[in-house]
Computed example of a mutant assay.
Amino acid sequence: MHNFKSTLSQTSLLGTFVKTPHPHIVEVLSLAELPFIILDAEHAPFDRTSLDACILAARANQLPCLVRVQDSAPSTILNALDCGATGVQIPHVCTEQQAQTIARTCHYGEGGRGYAGSSRAANYATKPMAQHLADSASSTVVIAQIEDPEGVDNVDAIAGVEGIDALFIGQVDLTVAYGATSVNDEKVRQASIKIIEAAQKHGKPVGMFVATAQQAKDWGEIGVSFFCVGSEHKMIIDGFRQERNVMNS
């Protein structure tokens, strides 16, 4: 598998969130030639076994696979990375100190990620420690999701943390937090632009969730470089609704 970390800053990378905790979905999505997927362990019913199976399916099909974990606990992050995930996306990152702790937790070193050479990530004890440490340092992707007003206020400091590879704009949570009724609210838009500017200042890519590819094109012109368009659930619903409408027209 190519080093996804090195391609993350390319423009117009279009992936999707995966909500169904079953490897068949991942296998099918690999045929769509997406550049990446994000397993949504924050909002979908992934347990340790299903997460492991889906990551295995992604690796078997050379599909970069990130995990949006449910929290930033070391055990949560360790599980995703030991299973072989390309990286993790951490929700609700609000301060520089929190970002520093997350970056340390995601990488090997003093006070950081616990080492186990028997994991899938380490090729089940067949990869020398020095090689696994080097590979992990060069390829593990750590994304801080900014979705709270406090995170927006501190976004410049968060973006500057070494070990945070990218930012992700959580527009829906920002909409709720600001008391708005739409992601198109001007306050949400300005917060999003502030996040983009902070990422650009520190030379880091920024991603976001969008409902359609057209929205991705619009935000891409402003500086967003990778997108999650909907989910496999949305694609199933939209696809069959479209076919039903054709049938009934």
Rank of each mutant, 00 (worst) to 15 (best):
A116F: 15
S139E: 14
L174W: 11
L81M: 00
L133E: 09
A80R: 02
P74V: 06
T76H: 04
D185G: 05
T76M: 02
D135E: 14
T95A: 11
S119K: 04
T126C: 01
T181R: 13
R104I: 09
Q131I: 13
A177R: 04
E96M: 08
A177V: 10
V161S: 02
T126E: 07
A191H: 14
E147P: 05
G160T: 05
S192E: 11
G84S: 05
I77S: 00
S75V: 08
A73W: 10
P74R: 06
V183P: 11
K127H: 13
Q89G: 03
S72Y: 12
N184K: 15
V172Y: 15
A99H: 12
I158R: 00
I169M: 14
A166S: 05
I164H: 10
C106I: 04
E147F: 07
I146A: 03
S139T: 14
S136Q: 08
I169A: 08
G117W: 01
L78F: 06
L167W: 02
N79Y: 11
E110A: 05
G160V: 04
D153N: 10
Q145D: 08
A130M: 12
I143F: 00
D153I: 12
D71P: 10
A191G: 05
D153Y: 08
P149Q: 09
Y108M: 01
G151I: 03
D165Y: 09
V188T: 12
A157P: 01
G112K: 00
T175R: 04
G111A: 07
G151C: 02
S118L: 15
V142E: 00
D71L: 13
V142N: 03
T95P: 06
T101W: 07
C83P: 03
S139H: 12
N123P: 01
T86L: 08
Q171L: 10
D173W: 04
D82V: 10
D153G: 04
D148Y: 06
N79P: 00
A166N: 00
T105K: 04
G163Q: 02
T86W: 05
D135N: 12
V172W: 12
I193S: 05
L78P: 01
V183D: 08
A99N: 11
H107G: 02
I158N: 00
G170A: 13
G151W: 03
S72W: 08
S75T: 14
T101I: 13
Q98Y: 12
C94I: 10
Q131F: 00
C94Q: 13
D156E: 14
S119T: 15
P74Y: 09
Q190F: 07
I158L: 06
T95F: 14
Q100T: 10
C106R: 01
K187F: 04
G151H: 03
V152A: 04
Q70V: 13
D148W: 02
I193L: 15
I143W: 02
G87R: 03
P149T: 03
G84F: 07
V93F: 07
Y124D: 11
G87L: 11
D173C: 04
G179I: 09
Y124S: 14
P74I: 01
T86H: 06
T181G: 11
V88W: 08
A159C: 11
V188A: 06
I193W: 10
I102E: 01
